[in-house]
């Protein structure tokens, strides 16, 4: 006995999730109706605050031990309050830098931006230095294919 398997091609180039179809009922309802679920969508699921999300490209290997490599793309969310231990983007000496935020010395009047590579030393920021955490890194994306 043979069964025909029909292969339905997905439509992956669309960026927008499909709108729910209006409730026009004709013929028999599909048994799948009750199980309807929107397709997974990186734009929707990984970017929680689109208005606050920016991207950056990593240059160098100062975060190599955190698996953040030269050329990776970082997804930066400015809406999130930076916490101790977060990987953040900070603006220091007229440059954006990606580092661990270390707030453990806050009571002693300074904080540190710690690299994840023993060949680099931490950047110490004193309380009166002009400094801002520009955003919190939520994801990094690395290409696994030489296209």
């Amino acid at each position: 006995m043979t069964k025909t398997i029909q292969i339905i091609k997905g439509h992956f180039e669309s960026q927008q999730p499909l709108q729910l179809a209006p409730a026009i009922k004709a013929g028999f309802p599909s048994p799948a109706d009750d199980y309807h679920h929107d397709r997974l969508d990186f734009n929707r699921d990984l970017i929680r605050h689109p208005e606050a999300t920016f991207y950056g490209r990593v240059m160098g290997d100062s975060m190599i031990d955190a698996s953040i490599c030269d050329g990776d793309i970082a997804v930066i969310d400015r809406s999130i309050e930076p916490k101790d231990g977060d990987i953040v983007v900070a603006y220091v000496n007229e440059e954006f830098t990606i580092k661990y935020l270390d707030l453990s010395h806050k009571d002693e009047g300074y904080i540190e931006l710690r690299p994840a590579n023993k060949n680099y030393s931490p950047i110490r920021i004193n309380a009166d230095d002009e400094f801002e955490v520009w955003g919190v890194v939520l994801w990094t994306i690395k290409s696994m294919h030489n296209a």
Partner: peptide, 13 residues
Amino acid sequence: NPTTRWSDIIILK
């Protein structure tokens, strides 16, 4: 244009 062009996104050192 760091928000509209991949070639222009900010560099993180």
